[in-house]
Design a binder for these strands. Structure first.
Lengths: 336, 336
DNA sequence: GTGAAAGCGCTAACAG
DNA sequence: CTGTTAGCGCTTTCAC
């Protein structure tokens, strides 16, 4: 029994059409009646029925999020903070699109249509994990976070991974590190790929040789960081890296454990750089030097981008890249 | 331009009413026409417009989740896995209810009404954080996870915290531990409160004295576990606990760090028990002995409960308590 | 400026 | 068994 537009029309002594116009701020209705209607609507705690609005062909003000298990990544949690903000500011609600909805029979895109979803946020995938062809063809506006996809009505957003790692290499180089290793993330993921690119560019910039044995693939986890560092530290002493740049804080923390096991002191014998600046980076000992992603802004911007895509006519594929921040803590020092 | 019920009525050569009935599986329509309609609907990839359905007064098949920042706890990630499953199975979609929606002016409950939300899942709060009075009065079905709230159309779900900790104390007692300490979680939170209750009951069961100095309040984090353990281990050696039961894995891991700093060996000098069985529990060294919550089931059950609440007429307040599982790893041993 | 009326896609009486 | 019809709550022509 929520109050509807007719109730307030009666209370205000005007027609429903006038109420609708007044509430939507049309200038074609007399200022005084407009205010009166708005006042009454507020008093009666009127909130329009979203289904009716959506049905009449107008905006549904609904966005979808589609994500994988990646949810458990701390990254997503802080992302949601920014998403929430922007959602509020732009008046959208968010509907969670289940992973299972992505099947042949019960198509994801059609599910969006059926729910009148105006646009989707996609996060947590590797591009290769899934076929986004249908999404792209559907012209349903979409913003991909940390993925490389293009098409019309499509935008992507991510941190400036290349520059972040390149400048990490630069800092380490300034500290006289010459043997700098790299622990990659999930092979094939956008984040790992671009960060690796930054690593190569950084090496190139300072004419440091690229050595295959200094690059170990992982999957962003602590365990994989541990294993990778073990292998790195098993190299002959004179070949051993003096610094390791990691694709995630978790893997950096794993690397720190490996170093401890090998009896190496961080940062005196070995410098380690993480990526993300998750909470654990601060509480680990020594506290982790890392590259902070502005997850809050990524979330906020992603929603804003999606809103733009929805409202503007034909936006060409758009890429947004956000700067990162170097967070100096206790795991980096001049080369031994 | 998604296909609608009229399109398929035309294609099938029947009326829209028949299509509607056929699609909803009414027995009042001839089996052969029903099958024909269903086949055509499938071929044409028809999916009913959720807004229209919802508008006509039927089910909206939409549930809301309301959560706080607590989201960053790994607990919620796996919870969502179970939620997702049940959502699928019961055909609901999930809409994320922004924290900001909980304000005087833009009331949360009315937001749900306006979106035709049929029921809400609430988690991440302490009961005291917020006034749920209006929610309860509204009779909007709600399931609270890890909270103690009652009312009609309300259910709660959580792990059997009391029994979990009580039996942890029992195991430690069997291993001849007599000085068993407890690191609590956020004071006022349901989880911490009930786990503390289990601790007291456990002590009582074996006639171990309750000592105030063996109970330290924390907030579930690693840091708080570290600080608490530091204080516990600062007691005179003969008073020092030989075992610590923690309210979370994170605080247990913090306690392990404190023990290491104090030069104590876990589990030889000190046994430590965690709670949750998060991923890190397995990767920390020694691996953490802990109490596993079946988060997946909690999430699934929560949705099922909510669905029951929505469909059944007047269900009295209902509490579901799920068993936990003792996970024996490397941080517990007989008392020194 | 304002209101009457049509209609969004669907379901539920009620006739036939 | 099937079809006709009347709305659900809202926005939007189009008259007045």
């Amino acid at each position: 029994m929520p109050v509807n537009i007719r109730d307030i029309a009666k209370a205000a002594g005007v027609s429903v059409a006038t109420v609708s116009k007044a509430l939507n701020g049309y200038r074609s209705v007399n200022a005084s009646t407009r205010e009166k209607v708005q006042r009454i609507a507020k008093e009666m705690q009127f909130h329009p029925n979203a289904a009716a609005r959506s049905l009449v062909g107008q905006r549904s003000m609904t966005l979808g999020v589609f994500l994988t298990t990646g949810l458990s990544h701390p990254f997503f949690a802080s992302l949601l903070g920014g998403v929430d903000q922007a959602l509020q500011a732009r008046g959208y609600d968010l509907i969670y699109l289940s992973q299972v909805s992505w099947r042949e029979e019960y198509n994801f895109v059609r599910h969006c249509r059926s729910r009148n979803v105006e646009g989707v946020l996609v996060f947590g995938f590797q591009e290769s994990d899934m076929d986004f062809g249908e999404l792209i063809e559907s012209r349903l506006p979409a913003v991909f976070i940390d993925m490389e996809i293009s098409g019309s009505h499509i935008a992507t957003i991510s941190s400036d991974n290349v520059e972040a790692i390149r400048s990490a290499v630069r800092r380490l180089h300034e500290w006289n590190h010459r043997r700098i290793a790299f622990i990659a993330g999930q092979p094939g993921s956008y984040a790992s790929r671009t960060r690796f690119e930054g690593y190569r560019e950084g090496l190139a910039e300072f004419r440091l040789p690229f050595r295959q044995e200094y690059v170990i693939a992982g999957d962003f986890t602590r365990e994989s960081g541990y294993e990778a560092a073990k292998r790195l530290l098993a190299l002959p002493v004179r070949e051993r890296p003096t610094a390791i740049v990691c694709c995630s804080d978790m893997s950096a923390i794993g690397a720190m454990e490996a170093a401890a096991e090998e009896g190496l002191s961080v940062p005196d014998d070995l410098s380690i750089v993480g990526f993300d600046d998750i909470e654990a980076a601060r509480s680990v000992r020594p506290a982790l030097t890392t590259i902070r992603q502005d997850t809050q802004s990524i979330g906020r911007k992603a929603v804003e981008l999606l809103d733009d895509l929805i409202r503007e006519a034909d936006i060409p594929s758009k890429q947004v890249i956000l700067p990162t921040e170097w967070v100096s803590r206790g795991t980096c020092a001049p080369a031994p």
